[in-house]
Simulated assay, not measured.
Amino acid sequence: MQLSLIGYYSDFVVYPLVIAILGVAGLIEAGEEGTPGWIGTVLVCLGLWTLIEYALHRYVLHHVPYIKDLHDRHHVEERSPVGTPTWLSLGVHALIVVSVWLISDFAIASAVGCGLMLGYLWYVSVHHMIHHWHPSHPSYLYTLKRRHAVHHHIDDDANFGVTSIFWDRVFRTARL
C-alpha cells in the first residue's frame, strides 16, 4: 500500500529498536547457560525467514487478490513508498512471539522473534537498497539488484527471493 515517507522509513527505526530490546530481554531470560541455544534459535529463524520471504513473495504478493494489485503497482512504480505498514508487520511478528511464548518460554519466543525480525529487517533493507542505490558491479548487492530487475521487468514468475537465490534454486524459479 502507498505509505507516507515516515511510514515507509519507520521499519528502519522501529525494527532495530524492537530487536535490541527483545534480544536483551531474551538473553537475560536465557542466562549464561541458555545463550548458545538462544543464538542458535535466532540463526535458525533467520534462515527460516528466507523461506517465508520466498513463499510470501511467490504466493501472496503474486496471487492473493488486492495484495496482488498493490504488488503490481510496486512493479510499475518501483521507487514509490509502497510497502507494508510497520504496525501491520510488527503486529504479525508480535503474534508469532506471543504464540511461541504460550507453548514454550520467553527466551525461546524472544529468539524466534529476533531471528524472524532480523530476517524481515534484512529483507526490507535489501529491497530498499536494490531499488534506490547503485551498487558496484561485482558485489552481492549488485547481483541481487540484477536478479530482482529480471523479476520486475522480464519474468515475474521467477526470482522471488529478494535476499537470496537459495529457494529459487530449490523450487526451480531462478532465472539469471
Score class of each variant (00 low, 15 high):
L61M: 15
D157S: 14
A107C: 10
I67G: 12
H152D: 04
L176Y: 13
L102T: 12
H93Q: 12
G31M: 08
P16Q: 10
T84F: 12
Y142N: 09
W38V: 06
I52A: 11
T50W: 01
A149N: 09
R172T: 05
A111L: 01
F106I: 02
I28G: 01
E77M: 06
S89K: 14
W101V: 01
G161V: 01
A109P: 10
F166P: 02
H131T: 06
L27D: 01
S80Q: 14
Y66R: 15
W101Q: 09
I39F: 10
H62W: 07
H152M: 02
D11R: 12
V112C: 00
Y54A: 00
A149Q: 10
G37Q: 10
M1P: 15
G47Q: 02
D156A: 10
S80R: 14
G47N: 04
H132A: 00
H74G: 03
P135W: 00
D156E: 14
V76H: 11
F171W: 02
Q2H: 14
P138N: 10
L116C: 05
L88D: 11
S139D: 00
G26Q: 07
R73Y: 03
D105K: 04
F12G: 07
L5Q: 11
A94I: 08
K68E: 13
V112E: 02
P138M: 00
